[in-house]
Design a protein around this nucleic acid. Structure first.
Lengths: 237, 237
DNA sequence: TGATTGGCTATTGGATCCAATTTAACATCC
DNA sequence: GGATGTTAAATTGGATCCAATAGCCAATCA
């Protein structure tokens, strides 16, 4: 998606043009690749050729390698020694794993956040639910869903906890893309979102936590079943 | 801690000698550095000069850079753009974060694991408690504590969940090193370990989970208080 | 004819080299 | 004498180059 070639480039090519808001090329590549993977634009199992990526980003292979290493630590790509990196596969077992982590972490984040949520936060959450109702594209849908959840947790403090939550929420969304595209039933989730928001607005911490846990586990179970039925997914998106 | 210099090295130096069980130099450096940081042998705030590390490991700067990127994704080191990498600082806020994550994840892992724990697992846990009783060195102590906890969670399945648990358990141990060294009171933890193991052995999942959560939160609170008292730690170990 | 082995190619892993940025010291000016 | 602008050293970020390994294809032999 980045400007390919067309840059003879003496030494530090395209740097000034291509990364206006990034400090380093590594950061730019890492961010771009991560969002591309999480938004489902690169399917699981896709091999990531360093040379191709370098050409696509208009850099050398080195920042690509560093970016891939970071993505590996985030479990988004896998390194086969001397065989290169591939986008991590989404398996049913993985979906259960991610669901378990989400179900454990998100209620905690929510409980910490609820007492400090402002009216503005709640309004924003309400708006996001409305946006989701009128959003047909699954990609945008996942983004909105992620923002809805993160809005509810925003006041939790605990940056590390929130980073973990966001990471696994994104991983779940990546998986859900398949489910949503295939089954096209986000309505149930929407009802659960409504109920969750109501409990949050009334500061019923325990109720909200229980609703959230069930919401996550239901999504995870559906997804795991879906993935198990068609076996490990692979190939073109 | 690795053989320094003494290797003129034509091209791919020390490779055959220095990494017998590692596929690549990057893996070796990453593993070595991570354990060194987690075991407290490199204090928080220590700058990690790429050139020095490369010389110490007998390689060039490149595998060092890749390893540092992976450690950055694990929140063990921090990259200051154009200023290099430093070992991540342990702050009181961080300790609270790690504690919250642990308290959320570990009871889940324990609940998943308990039904499948074998008598061998329980024996091993018992042995580890005994080992901890007679271990004066705080470094070894943390290692034993980590193995005790991980033994209880071993049968949980869910590899991703377990990896996260292990990562944050190690992070907590890294912090605890200071506490243990200064306060030298591991006895209370030991009582809690005994009670926890008893509940686990009797398969009382709910009780065990509650005990574990309180165990973690108590350790975290003590640690946070300890860190807050002396401000952000820094400098020589 | 089929299996095995040898070389060949593509791609990654590592080393070396160059540019850019930050920091610190130093000299100069007010 | 203190503050400030300038310059030089150190260190990182990026590019290019070389070696090593894995996979593939063909040629050879049983």
């Amino acid at each position: 998606m980045a400007s390919p070639s067309a840059a003879p480039a003496t030494t530090t090519a395209g740097q000034g043009r291509d990364l206006p808001r990034f400090r380093t090329a590594t950061t730019m590549i890492e961010t771009t690749l991560r969002t591309a993977i999480l938004e489902g634009r690169i399917a699981g199992g896709t091999p990531l050729r360093q040379e191709d990526l370098a050409a696509r980003f208009g850099t050398s292979r080195m920042p690509v390698r560093e970016a891939l290493r970071q993505l590996e630590a985030q479990a988004l790509v896998e390194f086969l020694p001397h065989r290169g990196a591939v986008v991590a596969e989404i398996s049913a077992a993985d979906a259960l794993d991610v669901t378990a982590v989400r179900a454990a972490l998100e209620p905690v984040a929510l409980a910490l956040s609820i007492p400090h949520l402002t009216a503005t936060d709640l309004d924003r959450a309400r708006d996001l639910i409305a946006d989701m109702d009128s959003e047909p594209d699954p990609g945008r849908m996942g983004e909105l869903n992620r923002r809805f959840h993160m809005t509810l947790y925003a006041q939790a403090g605990r940056p590390r906890l929130l980073a973990l939550v966001e990471q696994h929420l994104a991983a779940a969304d990546r998986s859900l893309r398949y489910q949503l595209a295939a089954l096209g039933r986000a309505e149930m989730s929407q009802h659960e979102h409504q109920a969750l928001l109501a409990a949050v607005a009334e500061r019923r911490i325990a109720d909200a936590g229980a609703l959230l846990a069930r919401h996550i586990e239901r999504a995870g179970a559906t997804l795991a079943q879906f993935l198990a039925e068609r076996g490990p997914r692979q190939g073109t998106p």
